[in-house]
Write a protein that binds this DNA or RNA. Structure first.
Lengths: 290, 290
DNA sequence: AATTTTATCTGACCTAAGTCAGACAAATGA
DNA sequence: TCATTTGTCTGACTTAGGTCAGATAAAATT
């Protein structure tokens, strides 16, 4: 156990010196960290002075001075907000946008360098996802999204890959009944994503029709987030939406090669029923009355 | 690929805010970060002012002032080094030791908290080891050590566990020929550890006797360090030591359940030979003439 | 219309951190 | 022995970052 603590502290040291290098790269463009942070916040789309101040946790006096400095440098312009002229809005000038892009380039290069010098970049990424998800586990949010958006497709792709790995026969999505995206968009259904910071780490689809019966599809949780009860959260939210859409009965199909899924369904009030479709992949079928 | 970059930058954000919290905890004891860092360096055993200065990368003027401040607080005493009275040596007072212990406690608590709130602490630790090893991959060092030291035992324990997992029959070290520790200490042999920062991530033993023939034992590399050519580095160093001890012939035994090991031996000039012992576990035997 | 609240700014002030030139004393080398 | 080098310290100065008490103007409330 003491040994484990040492491992974490070694990790902190390793990452701190790397993050220190990151801070230095911010300073490397000849601008103090404070101004650089404000410039980046504006570049990332924050406009209102108050919002930026809260986001960066700055005193209003200091914030004002940093803005004035960036203005003097010609990096930003400020003006009153159209709907409340007490509030001020900051925007990048062309010069400011160039500086911001340069910061982005440095950050991306640094990230790329970490991947490039390691023989197993995928292992690095998986480890980073696990740690970032663990550190932010209290800030995981579930959002509704169009299943054709890139974040949703990211999850679905991972889901298909996992089925491919775990089914003895492999998995070809074209042989399965791929639900119409519009069946998973309100008012017929919904597609939910679990987000940790900006990374999608889980999904579930509620595929509805015109009647009171709907199907749960594509329940998946990233390996980085397993054990955090995320599947239950996703299912509960999907059931809530179903109720609000006037749906009385939910069905789903699954495969006995995914025993943790069947266990979850049984534990949360689902009953096993007879086969209700001719999809070649599933071999277990469940139903739940809301 | 762009997606991967985003994942790394998310990791940086997550870790930076956590590390920021660590810095704040340093400040939380009412001492500025600079003084706290010096106090901790002294607590961790650094004594000479110049060594501390280099380690923390401080200007000599600033260093001097920080020392003076800690002295005024009653945290440390300084005096001339006995062998060169230009150099000064800093030591903790009882009060200083108490403050240092408090910092250690805070750091350990923080680390413990991360583990405690996650359902799979072992996964967190493995991920942290992987990342810390990757970030410090250019600073991996190979050292000689007594195989009875805790760092060596850490590696050996992991090695036995891995054999237990990978051999169809399991692995019981008591049934195997456990080499005498003294056979792996100069002048008979040597035990080598690969260290990343303070974490042992690989080992190999050279078990010698009185004659010119020796055995390679216990070659192991942590999953966190695989792909970094560490096994080759360890073997090369073991062979170098063997030569310097007047050994002409090396032997080793291994098992076909560890194909990557046999592949390494074949690639580095080892020849498969007939069984030369009656250990129940190995089923492949190699020899190399130096 | 007068008062209060909100959002930002300004001036005065502070600490932490760091730089640099030179002082000083001990150790080293010619 | 004398000049040079080395390790540390001191004083003078700078920048970054931050706090706080008003000032100011727009918006919201009474």
């Amino acid at each position: 156990m003491t040994d484990d603590i040492q491992r974490i502290r070694r990790f902190n040291r390793a990452v701190t010196s790397e993050v220190g290098a990151l801070d230095t790269s911010f300073l490397g463009l000849g601008r103090p960290l404070g101004s650089a942070r404000v410039l980046n916040a504006i570049g990332h789309g924050l406009q209102e002075v108050g919002v930026i101040r809260d986001y960066l946790g700055l005193d209003s006096g200091l914030m004002s001075r940093l803005l004035r400095g960036l203005e003097a440098e010609g990096m930003i312009t400020t003006g009153p907000s159209p709907d409340d002229s007490r509030r001020r809005i900051a925007q990048l000038t062309d010069e400011g946008r160039a500086a911001f892009t340069e910061y982005e380039r440095l950050s991306n290069d640094q990230a790329r360098a970490i991947l490039a010098r390691h023989p197993r970049p995928q292992a690095i990424l998986d480890a980073m996802d696990l740690i970032a998800t663990a550190l932010g586990q209290d800030r995981i949010e579930i959002i509704e999204i169009d299943p054709r958006e890139p974040e949703a497709i990211h999850c679905l792709t991972q889901y298909y890959r996992e089925l491919e790995r775990r089914f003895a026969t492999g998995f070809d999505v074209n042989l399965s009944r791929d639900p119409e995206a519009t069946d998973m968009i309100r008012p017929r259904g919904v597609f939910l994503l679990a987000m940790s910071d900006a990374l999608p780490i889980g999904c579930v689809g509620l595929k509805g029709g015109d009647g009171p019966v709907a199907e749960i599809k594509r329940l998946w949780v990233s390996p980085a987030a397993r054990g955090l009860k995320l599947a239950t959260r996703l299912m509960t939210r999907a059931e809530d939406v179903a109720r609000s859409l006037g749906i009385h009965t939910l069905r789903l199909d699954t495969n006995s090669a995914l025993p943790e899924a069947a266990a979850l369904y049984r534990k949360t009030g689902w009953q096993e029923i007879d086969r209700f479709n001719d999809d070649p992949y599933p071999d277990m079928f469940f139903e739940k009355t809301l």
